[in-house]
């Protein structure tokens, strides 16, 4: 059973997402807090996510997208979930790793 990787930093500010994508084994990636900007179209890091979709199932937390006014620009292939979906993801994976 693969693990769930959680990232909470904007990829334009810190390297947490880049390190996660480089190191983590194929599995799932959940973007929360400031990391939801990584899930949006048109940023300079968009290609990192579109490329990573072949290795990870990628999710973004909808309440965090909505709070930041970017829920309407989520990259195709990235699924949006609420907190209950977050709980389901944790339960469905063998462990989770927060790339703080």
């Amino acid at each position: 059973m693969p693990i769930l990787n959680i990232v909470n930093k904007s990829p334009l500010e810190r390297n947490a997402l880049a390190s996660c994508l480089r190191i983590a084994a194929p599995g799932a990636l959940l973007l929360i807090e400031d990391a939801v900007y990584a899930a949006t179209r048109g940023t300079s890091t968009e290609a990192e996510i579109t490329t990573a979709l072949s290795k990870f199932r990628i999710y973004a937390l909808l309440p965090d997208l909505q709070a930041r006014a970017v829920a309407d620009r989520v990259i195709d292939g990235v699924a949006t979930i609420d907190y209950e979906g977050f709980v389901d993801l944790v339960a469905e994976h063998s462990a989770c790793q927060s790339w703080l």
Binding site: N8, E33, P63, Y83, E84, F86, V87, D88, A91, L100
Partner: peptide, 26 residues
């Protein structure tokens, strides 16, 4: 939880996650 209240979102995220954990019957 590694962060204090108000400065960062961590405590808010953790709280909402906990509520959802309980709502799902865990």
């Amino acid at each position: 939880i590694n962060e204090g209240p108000y400065q960062r979102q961590a405590s808010d995220s953790a709280y909402l996650f906990c509520k959802a954990v309980l709502a799902k019957g865990h």
